[in-house]
Design a protein around this nucleic acid. Structure first.
Lengths: 332, 332
DNA sequence: TTGTAGGCGTTATCAT
DNA sequence: ATGATAACGCCTACAA
């Protein structure tokens, strides 16, 4: 159309140095007029590189994941990558299918969050050429995680310091890695203080808020009601807040509640939620940086753990002074 | 590797009929052993079609968007499409850049939600070959929208029926389309009932919860406090609930609150939130179906509007009996 | 049932 | 500074 060879057009479009001004101008103008856009597929094919990274995540509608994705997108963009997202719905099959399809797309590398496979990637790593970085799976060599253990410890220690001895934990079985660490942190603090955990005080939701609600209801009908609840995450805590309120249990006067994540929502709960902050922006940023290093062939990257810290707001307070000793006799 | 021609391998991999069993088996086995995965870029290039649709959205961390994306992904998958997501951050420049990059990727079609360009796509449509479907922009010929107008009317009518005469609206200027419709619905109901809207009763947030909080604070210091607040969306309503509670205003005794969206979160607010339900699953599903029709060359698609209905929970109640007549004299 | 040949749209290499 | 040529990895006729 411009009466020049494809090579010349190619050079004009990518602002190659060795091309005359006038030709370049002409070609650029024509390209604009006819709305010509080069085909990425063709370019990727000959270049043998897609500047795209794959991101596998659990659910799109998860607030934690949502802001994580934003930080990943931003970091990726600043390094010149596009991001291709796939949801796994916390299903191992779908997760593997997602990774396979990213392999098909020849993405430069993959970030996985909320994995159901976890260490399984050490094997996938050999089969597939693309490097993989996991978020919140510290046992994997290439991973970035929040310090779930320390975060949970701070939360529970805070409750113990407030005088609580009857502390429950609402788990999320779907997030086994993070869940296990938080549970371990919970247990370790209570152990250290020689506080017994009643069997019925560790309850499980199903991942939904309705599930969390049911878990709280179990707690409410248990023989000894806990005076404090440590929740796997903020959404669980919000469900707890609501359920307690419906049951006439005042927070924090009758029962304290602690969440995990520190979503944007947390300060706007009623009352504002005490929770453990995860630095989602740094998690995403470091994950992309690590992946970038791996893509560039640097193999000596170390797994990283980012601090998680307690943010005290209004859902935690002193333990209510109930007849505790007597009840203990009844229970055991 | 199998000692056969590329065509044979190609046929085996896509289960072509005309190939012998044994060869096919062999090839499939070898392919599996050496972890061979065909290159999508090469296939797309020769096939001249990517079975991928592009999805441009405002923010990943928006709960409304999140569940919309899930329904879109699901519908797309069932029709054999992959989905490529890009965030626009409600910025017109980034939105256009997103569309350009999807054009580069030769996606089969594009869905846009939270557009800042809106009707601008009627022009883009000619320049780019890919069909575009907009969500919540009823003025565009190819669009699926919730009935924002009717939804807002139901919400405000509900408040009027409860005796409220001093009703405020918290707007979100970033979502101009939907915001305008909801504002219009709000106005029309009050007009019909010949209820005057105090100038200070239409306030704007900045899209964040903190912004919504400030908007509510403006309302609280206004000369005549509203007895009810209609919020642009649920997150705004949650911020309102919190701010009112902090200020010692009881909901719904002193002030009623209505949201919009009916997020999963809504029933778990304190108190559970009265809101207008948008059928996000249907929005997404219909959007994909419409796009699919356009991709297949059917041009006679009509814009669609999906019903939005009020869900009454616990944040709305009878208007408090204050000395209203007297104050009116003071104010005017 | 299988192989051969051509081409998808781009870039890289080598000439000119 | 520009053009010709080959190649990227795959698919689709067409021929055998």
């Amino acid at each position: 159309m411009a009466g020049v060879s494809p090579s010349t057009v190619s050079r004009a479009l990518k602002a190659d140095a060795r091309i005359s001004q006038e030709r370049s101008q002409l070609i650029l103008r024509l390209a604009h007029e006819m709305d010509y856009t080069p085909s990425l597929a063709a370019r990727d094919l000959v270049t043998q590189q897609t500047n795209t990274i794959g991101l596998v995540l659990s659910y799109m509608s998860d607030l934690f994941v949502g802001s994580l994705v934003m930080s990943i997108e931003e970091a990726a963009m600043s390094l010149g990558y596009s991001v291709f997202l796939i949801s796994s719905y916390r299903d191992a099959k779908r997760e593997q299918e997602a990774v396979r399809s990213l392999h098909e797309r020849r993405t430069a590398g993959i970030i996985v969050t909320g994995s159901q496979i976890d260490e399984g990637y050490v094997q996938l790593r050999r089969r597939y050429a693309q490097p993989v970085v996991l978020i919140n799976c510290p046992s994997y060599p290439h991973s970035i995680s929040s310090d779930n253990l320390a975060g949970a410890r701070q939360a529970v220690e805070h409750l113990v310091q407030l005088g609580h001895r009857q502390i429950a934990y609402i788990a999320d079985p779907r997030s086994h890695g993070a869940n296990l660490d938080r549970l371990t942190g919970y247990r370790s603090v209570l152990d250290r203080h020689q506080i017994l955990i009643e069997p019925g005080w560790i309850v499980e939701g199903d991942g939904t808020m309705a599930g969390a609600q049911q878990a709280v209801q179990q707690l409410l009908v248990s023989r000894r009601r806990p005076t404090a609840i440590f929740c796997f995450n903020d959404l669980t805590a919000i469900a707890a807040l609501n359920t307690l309120s419906q049951a006439g249990v005042r927070v924090p006067a009758d029962c304290s509640v602690v969440g995990f994540d520190d979503l944007e929502l947390a300060p706007f709960c009623c009352p504002p939620l005490t929770t453990v902050r995860q630095h989602r922006d740094q998690l995403g940023q470091r994950a992309v940086q690590m992946l970038h290093q791996l893509i560039q062939g640097q193999c000596e990257v170390q797994p990283e753990t980012l601090p998680a810290e307690l943010v005290v707001r209004k859902t935690t307070g002193p333990a209510p002074a109930v007849a505790e000793g007597r009840e203990e006799v009844i229970d055991f």
